[in-house]
C-alpha cells in the first residue's frame, strides 16, 4: 500500500499571535507540525504496521522550514519525504496549494492520501478536499476511525457529524482528512530523531512537477488577505470571592437580570 501524507508547518497552538502592518507577525513564532497532520502521520504508520507492507511518503509545500515538519514525520517512521518549494508557490491560497500537491502526487503512486482536517493557522479546512477533486478521487473528511478492507481496495471511515458519526464507504484511492480522536500519535525516539538529522530531503520545484507559475502563488489567489487584525480585548468583569453559596446566588441573579439569559 502506497500511503502519501500531506503535512504543513504551523505556529504552535500556545503561540500568542501578533499583528504588524495588517499582517500576522511571525518574527517570534515557534513552529510545529500541524496537530491534525500528526494524526494523519500516525494513521499512515498504523496502516503499514497492520498490513505488514507499504511505503509512506510525506509531502509538504512551504518555505525552507517546512523541512522540519517533514523530518518530524521521518523521525517517527515515514520512509520518504518530498519538499515542494519554489518562490512562485509563496502566498498560495487553498486552491493553489491543492493544485501544487495534486501535480506532485501525479508523479507518485498513491493508494491512500492523508491530510489533517485543517491547518490550525489560517483555518481554511479546504486543501485535502480540493486535492481529491483535482485528482478526481473521493474523499472522507473529519475522520475519527478508519478501517481498510482486507483486499486493500476500499475503506470504511467514521466521520464526526452533528449529534453522531457517519460511517462512509469509499473505494481507494481516496483522500482522508484526519480529525482528533483518530489515534494517539507516537513520539519520536532519540534514535529516530538522530537518524533524520542529516537526511537530505529532495526538493521539487514548479518546473519539476509541471505546474504553471502563473496559476499558483499570491497573484493567482482566488482568496487573498486584505488585512489581519486582533480582536478587541475583553474587559474583565465582576468577580466574587466571598462565600460560594452566596456568590452563586448573586451571579445567577446577575445572569438573569443583567445578561437576560433565561
Amino acid at each position: 500500500m502506497n500511503i502519501v501524507i500531506c503535512v504543513k508547518q504551523v505556529p504552535d497552538t500556545e503561540t500568542k499571535i501578533r499583528v504588524k502592518d495588517g499582517q500576522v507577525d511571525h518574527s517570534e513564532t515557534k513552529y510545529v507540525v500541524n496537530p491534525y497532520d500528526e494524526y494523519a502521520i500516525e494513521e499512515g504508520l498504523r496502516i503499514k504496521e497492520r498490513m505488514g507492507e507499504g511505503t509512506i511518503t510525506l509531502v509538504s509545500m512551504g518555505p525552507e522550514r517546512a523541512k522540519d515538519a517533514l523530518k518530524s514525520g521521518l523521525a517517527v517512521g515515514a520512509e520518504e519525504a518530498i519538499h515542494l518549494t519554489d518562490e512562485a508557490f509563496e502566498g498560495s491560497d487553498p486552491y493553489a496549494t491543492a493544485l501544487i500537491l495534486s501535480k506532485a502526487l501525479q508523479k507518485l503512486d498513491y493508494d491512500i492520501i492523508f491530510c489533517g482536517k485543517q491547518g490550525v493557522d489560517e483555518d481554511h479546512a479546504q486543501v485535502g478536499i480540493i486535492l481529491s477533486e483535482l485528482l478526481d478521487i473521493p474523499h472522507v473528511s473529519v475522520v475519527t476511525k478508519l478501517e481498510i478492507s482486507d483486499d486493500g481496495k476500499s475503506i470504511l471511515a467514521h466521520r464526526e457529524v452533528e449529534g453522531g458519526h457517519e460511517v462512509v464507504e469509499a473505494p481507494l484511492p481516496a483522500v482522508i482528512t484526519a480529525q482528533k480522536g483518530l489515534n494517539e500519535p507516537r513520539y519520536a525516539s532519540i534514535k529516530g530523531i538522530m537518524a533524520v538529522k542529516k537526511k537530505v530531503i529532495p526538493e521539487w520545484n514548479a518546473e519539476e512537477i509541471g505546474v504553471e507559475t502563473t496559476s499558483v502563488g499570491l497573484e493567482a489567489a482566488k482568496v487573498s488577505f486584505v488585512e489581519v487584525s486582533l480582536p478587541p480585548e475583553r474587559e474583565s468583569g465582576k468577580v466574587f470571592a466571598e462565600d460560594p453559596v452566596q456568590d452563586a446566588i448573586k451571579v445567577a441573579h446577575l445572569l438573569r437580570d443583567e445578561a437576560k439569559i433565561l
Partner: peptide, 17 residues
C-alpha cells in the same frame, strides 16, 4: 471577515474568482 488562528486574529479577505 473570517477568524483565523481559531479566533486569535481576524482576517478580512477578498475573492477574485
Amino acid at each position: 471577515t473570517r477568524p483565523i488562528y481559531a479566533g486569535k486574529a481576524t482576517a478580512i479577505v477578498r475573492e477574485t474568482a
